[in-house]
Design a protein around this nucleic acid. Structure first.
Lengths: 221, 221
DNA sequence: TAAAAGGAAAGGGTTTTTCCTGTTTTTGCA
DNA sequence: TGCAAAAACAGGAAAAACCCTTTCCTTTTA
């Protein structure tokens, strides 16, 4: 089954239809074979133990239940550092890309990639060990040239709480009460965050929080 | 190529990789063949004119650029009412499901459907003309039993535009200018929508829009 | 054809947000 | 322990958001 000339691929994606379809596509590529399919990181963990011949390349989705892409790649870097992880995501979100690259992803493919480009990309990963598209490379360079802050906005706990509450219908006065702080302190947080994040108003803050997954649409309220 | 015993399928989805993979999967099903692939509604429109033998079943994604699923199915009902449209979406959002069913969708499959179930579903659509899963049927029944309003927050185009712009950092004055309307008219929309949707302020409106997928985090700005 | 319904706009008000420039209090650490 | 940085808090003011009511006009419907 697993003749040595095949590059073994794992697909980690909770969308069964996509995963199954992709499996067929990849199996049709010259020299590639899907040897493992998992629905999330936890599932991958389990299946990696069971499989006799571990995969060479792991195609990893980010948005997954139970154990998402970020957690999964972190775990993989620790326990299976020899495996080349490639992100396969719907989002071309800059922060997502950087986060995965920082964790050691060997490539970041978007799900609307052309099948032929996927094949080329997989070959590159196999041969060179990585494959970064023009866009991804650009984002990396920009990230290196700019100060880290923008790409890595670190928030204090109280700031995160404030942001979270700003995404509700509460007024700032109510938020102040909730956090047992003076409304003026809250105003200070607001002002500071607006400046740091480059937003004009509360809607901008809310959209920032959502885009950077500081808060989650499904769990919030 | 198109032997008459084949049921001809079209795939409309902007995610090339998914569409291509799915094509292979469906072609492997007994009696089905993909005869058309389009990236969005506009693309489908164009390709339907070019194709000699029109498809029997159209698998339609909702989230697409240029001409989304809702617009596309509306156009199809008008100009190609004989074709069976089946929604293939990532979202199990109630409103989406109802909206598509109302437009005459013959089925609503989630993208994480099992390949075998997709095959069964396609057979049902071919033989019975429709295929509604247990979940979808339940949603339909609930919708019929409750008052329409909640399930049917129908928005006019201008309201949708207003909501979309409310999710940006623009002030209402700027939104009014953008829509060539008086700020007072915009204020009227705001007030009306707040009441209809039961929200207190703009953040509430933004969260509503996001939760009900009126706007999309990835495509917005 | 008159009444009803609904969209656009306005007047005039309160509350909240946003912004600027401070002071006081707390905290980390040399 | 002392001092500098930060966090907390404040006054004041303009802008924006929010709210209620009414008018005008067009379209739909009884």
């Amino acid at each position: 089954m697993n003749t040595p000339q095949f590059t073994k691929v794992a697909i980690v994606d909770d969308h069964l239809l996509f995963a199954s379809s992709l499996e067929r596509l990849i199996n049709s590529f010259n020299g590639f074979q899907v040897v493992l399919k998992a629905e999330n990181g936890a599932d991958l963990k389990k299946k990696l133990e069971e499989i006799p011949t571990p995969p060479d390349i792991i195609l990893l989705d980010i948005n997954m239940p139970i154990m998402n892409g970020f957690e999964t790649i972190k775990w993989l870097r620790e326990y299976h550092p020899e495996q080349k992880v490639v992100t396969l995501s719907m989002d071309d979100n800059e922060l997502f890309i950087l986060k995965m690259l920082k964790e050691g992803a060997r490539g970041y493919f978007l799900k609307d990639i052309h099948p032929a480009d996927l094949e080329k990309g997989l070959c590159e990963v196999r041969d060179k060990g990585f494959c970064y598209s023009k866009d991804v490379t650009e984002i990396m360079v920009t990230a290196l040239n700019s100060n880290q802050d923008k790409l890595n906005p670190v928030f204090r706990d109280v700031e995160l709480e404030f942001i979270r509450l700003s995404c509700t219908e509460m007024t700032y006065r109510e938020i102040a009460e909730e956090l047992n702080l003076s409304p003026k302190t809250i105003d200070g947080y607001r002002q500071d965050l607006f400046k740091r994040l480059g937003v004009r108003n509360r809607v901008g803050l809310v959209m920032f929080a959502l885009k950077h997954k500081i808060i989650d649409l499904n769990t919030s309220k």
